[in-house]
Amino acid sequence: MVGIELVSIYKPKSLSDALEFLDKNAPDVKPIAGGTELLLLIRDKKIKPPKYLLDLYPLKKQLSYVKVENGIVRIGALTTVYELSQSILHRDKRFAGFVDVYDKFGTMALRFEATIGGNLNAATQYSDYITLMLVFDASVRLESVKGVRELKLSEFVLDKRKTALNPNELVTEVVFREPPLDSSSSFVKFDRREILIAGIVTEATYLHLEGDTIKDVRISFDMVAGRRIPARALKTEEFLRGKSFTSDLLEEAAEKVLPSEMSRVTDWWTTADYRLEMSKVSLKRGLKLAYERVKGVR
């Protein structure tokens, strides 16, 4: 690769050291976590090799955790996908969507390398944890030498491979409010084969029930309209909220409401029409799965 011999790697001694290094050298520096995305982007020449790589492994102890404290779920940015699977997120039915994402994420070995922060930073429609955490209404914590700010995930991801992260900032944590007891979540992804797939469409659901009434619902897709990044299906959510959960309702949401806010693209893999139809199916399946989980049938 042209210029790779010019790259140097910096191993910070602490988070503050990392932030200082970033501040001093931005924008000629790229933080590297699991490396499963960044190295491919360099290899495929989709990005120029940066002058510096900021190695985040030294911060692993500090930034790898899943905590639920005072009604807030906190996930350290360097938590690997495998580590997520060993956390409460895979044991509590409210977070069942995490189990679904994990089940279709890369391959087993990739789950040991890929980190949650890396997945969010990649900011593509294939960043399944963005799609999922949008329905938990998650925020990312961005730190720099100047201080800390929190951004809603939906404000963080601006466009394909484009985030609101300033060059001197680091994503250190993703946080969301602990969902109520009678809620659950789900994630739907399928393709020609079972694993190592992009997903024809991907969909995430968060559902909070009161009896059979939809107290709250959030739905996201790998893309909704225009930009190829995950986003919420807000109109569909609005339509569903407060109504009684029935299959007719799902049908109406899928057929009447969702298409009004969903636009899909045709590419060499498949057609926009098929993707739209599968968005409807995924919506219904995701809601049904979350519903069954709340009710304890699944």
Binding site: T107, R193, I195, L196, W268, W269
Partner: peptide, 28 residues
Amino acid sequence: LMEDLYYDSEGRLMNNNLSTYHIPTARD
């Protein structure tokens, strides 16, 4: 079920690696 090659109009192959050219995995 899954394998085919896709070309753009200029004859460039679109799926030239193993994440875009699907072959069966252990789970299939």
